[in-house]
Design a protein around this nucleic acid. Structure first.
Lengths: 219, 219
DNA sequence: TTTAAATTTGACCAATTGGTTAAATTAATT
DNA sequence: AATTAATTTAACCAATTGGTCAAATTTAAA
């Protein structure tokens, strides 16, 4: 679709157009996720999409614009889930268990996104600025405050030990993400590089984390 | 020093030589750590070292060779510490507290190394193979087994709750590393991008992790 | 003080890279 | 069927990149 780089993906485009565009985006995701912005090559993306390189620039003018799209998609898959977990009104421990189950599943389905986000954001934190404007940044603050309030309520009710909301959240996400982004190192150092053993480890990790956290915060 | 790429840094080289070589290595570290293998430019490294680009190739034939040196140094700073923590014969909880204090300090001093290692290793896990051959891979297995044995002893002695050594180690390191590698995201989402607030958060994080873990594993 | 060896440089090169353009092809509109 | 608009391609380009080389300079050895 012409001027697509401005108007984006809309419902009135034909199946054919959607396919070409989607093929490019899929290929771009694949290449960018594994090689990063600086390591990705437009030619490789074109090859993987089965199209001419010039067509890439026809749809997404520049490498930066294409990268932006891929990054935004990756970001949206992972980050809102974290604040999302704090929104429901179930008890804290239930909430956490639910989150860990879902987040670990998400990580298993997209194991390369977190390292990609970490790498690109450390190299250029500026990317976040524009993303934060677009997305649900307004309510975010209230959500965190509410989650903290809920925790303090349960602390006073004698359900939980005294814990700080943000420390808890960073710990939970860290315990979930590290075995994924650090896989090459951990698998090498602690599992003699045995892929099967490590997959088993990841399989039971969910339960391990939940038990570890509940043990820590339950009064 | 001529043929330096083969013989490496030895004590019999003059101060002048050591300086030039070190200047290159420092500059390379700086650039590689922030831009990664594919994003780093030999010209930028040369500029930062204040030398001609050809001199870079005189000392370290290729970009790959130079990268290898930087990577190995970064790796050696961080990874042996983890297995090292398990070697002493103090009680488990003391060991863990000592490790967290030291590791968090290390992370604060070198905040960009972990993301660098994660990124490069996910992109090319092959790098590890040669490194594992060179380094203390022999005793590593015994160290882990001994640590696990110590834990199980303390479990039976009623000091600790039942915990798996490798899960525990991954959790500890994950809780330490995530606030560093995920800084841009966490600072943005949870701290309204306030740098000062985040530094304060990092300052108390050490104690928070220790308390969190002890609460979880103490019987 | 020669002479030889090691270090440093400027100029250069081939390959790669992101991006462009004009022409060809296909799809949509009349 | 004719024309217009949208899509796709091959060929090309300027800039960048890792790397080389011969010459110049500095240092060490004789």
């Amino acid at each position: 679709m012409w001027l697509n780089f401005i108007v984006n993906t809309y419902s009135f485009m034909t199946e054919h157009e959607k396919n070409t565009e989607q093929k490019i985006l899929d290929a771009a995701e694949d290449v960018f996720l594994h090689k990063g912005m600086s390591g990705a090559r437009m030619q490789e993306i074109a090859d993987k999409a089965g199209i001419n390189k010039a067509l890439l620039h026809y749809y997404y003018r520049t490498k930066d614009k294409l990268f932006e799209k891929v990054f935004e998609k990756a970001f949206k898959i992972f980050i809102p889930k974290v604040t999302g977990m704090m929104a429901s009104d179930t008890p804290v421990i239930e909430k956490i268990k639910f989150f860990i189950d879902n987040y670990m599943d998400l990580l298993t389905r997209h194991p390369f996104i977190p390292a990609f986000l970490i790498s690109e954001l450390n190299r250029n934190p500026q990317i976040l600025v524009s993303l934060f404007e677009k997305n649900v940044q307004l309510t975010r603050n209230d959500i965190i405050k509410n989650f903290d309030k809920q925790i303090q309520t349960e602390v006073k009710a004698g359900i939980l030990k005294s814990v700080d909301a943000r420390n808890l959240m960073v710990s939970i996400v860290g315990m979930c993400i590290f075995p994924i982004v650090g896989r090459p190192i951990i698998q090498g150092v602690l599992f003699e590089n045995n892929k099967k053993d490590y997959n088993e480890f990841l399989g039971q990790r969910k339960e391990s984390i939940k038990e570890f956290i509940v043990n820590s915060i339950k009064a």
